[in-house]
């Protein structure tokens, strides 16, 4: 199926879901106001579905909206988004009957910042970016530049274990097999692991001195759905509300612990951070720890018990005296 055909099929399916009143809302992607950006499209109007797009720039994880919308929702989901949805179902935050998962097999999302860096230009100066198989062709100042796709995908896409949703109601195109490249995806984390404890702590201290506590990371995360976050508690006040690095770090450490077994490595937190703190180097580490210690992968098996509500009689004993 060509991309255009896939897009048309998506629009047709979305329209019929609305017309048949199987859903109250359609949540998907539309072109954004900036070049090479998409924006979430949330609509009850069947005429809007013609704005739905499928392209390599739909990085947002729309699962976030499921905890905010009332009623039945038809949602466009890449592999990672579908894992977040499954995780929300496991947490009893979303009821499976109320969602129609419209699965989109995904070849990875393009990280514009990586392209900008390689091209040495801001994205609004670039004429076109197209994906052709394993290459991305960037049109710029009348010339074309080919870049291997692996150099411009998001780090989390390089490690993707589920490009095609496993849990879905409709699948728009042929499934795409997973080809995770852990090594490439893990480069930043591996470097950190080579440092001493002291150096690592200094690294994070330095990174979180920039944090302005805007909470974009938390607000964009589908797994961060608490009505009241611990950072807002007043009695006791766990951390100061002004962004001191010490408290910024505690906020982020606890956030990641809360996300154990629910973070699906969708990469949204890192993408949202306005001061470019490498947040995925935290969330992916927790994701891996959960796998290593408990063999658990968030959002993979809809029948699995949530990680922290479950236990095995014998596990992780070596931490205890």
């Amino acid at each position: 199926m060509t991309n255009r055909e896939a897009e048309q099929r998506l629009r047709d399916e979305a329209k019929s879901l609305l017309e048949s009143a199987k859903v109250d809302y359609i949540v998907g992607f539309a072109d954004g106001s900036l070049k090479f950006h998409t924006t979430p499209l949330i609509t009850r109007n069947k005429d809007d579905v013609d704005h739905l797009v499928i392209n390599p720039f739909m990085a947002s994880n729309l699962a976030k909206f499921l905890t905010e919308l009332e009623g039945r929702v038809g949602i466009v989901a890449k592999g990672c988004d579908s894992r977040s949805i499954v995780s929300l179902v496991q947490d009893n935050k979303v009821s499976r009957e109320k969602v129609v998962i419209v699965g989109i097999p995904c070849r990875g999302m393009i990280n514009l910042s990586k392209i900008e860096q390689l091209a040495g230009k801001e994205s609004d100066e670039i004429d076109d970016i197209t994906r052709q198989g394993d290459k991305v062709v960037v049109k710029l100042d009348g010339s074309e530049k080919e870049i291997p796709v692996k150099e411009v995908l998001f780090d989390h896409c390089l490690a993707c274990e589920l490009p095609t949703p496993k849990e879905y109601d409709l699948l728009i195109d042929e499934p795409i097999p997973a080809t995770p490249d852990e090594e490439a995806s893990q480069a930043k984390i591996n470097k950190l692991e080579e440092l001493s404890h002291h150096e690592r702590w200094r690294f994070w201290q330095n990174e979180f001195s920039r944090c302005i506590r805007c909470y974009a990371c938390r607000n964009v995360c589908p797994a961060c759905y608490c009505q009241r976050c611990f950072v807002e508690e007043a009695e006791p006040q766990w951390i100061l509300s002004i962004p001191k690095w010490q408290d910024n770090l505690i906020f982020q450490i606890i956030r990641n612990i809360h996300l154990a077994g629910r973070c699906t490595d969708c990469g949204e937190c890192e993408r949202a951070c306005p001061v470019n703190i490498p947040l995925r180097s935290l969330s992916k580490e927790m994701y891996d720890l959960v796998g290593e210690l408990f063999g658990f992968k968030s959002g993979m098996e809809i029948d699995a018990a949530p990680l922290l509500t479950h236990y095995e009689l014998e596990e992780a004993e070596d931490f205890f005296r």
Partner: peptide, 8 residues
């Protein structure tokens, strides 16, 4: 494990 990764 996570605290150790952070550098504690």
């Amino acid at each position: 494990k996570f605290l150790e990764y952070m550098g504690i």
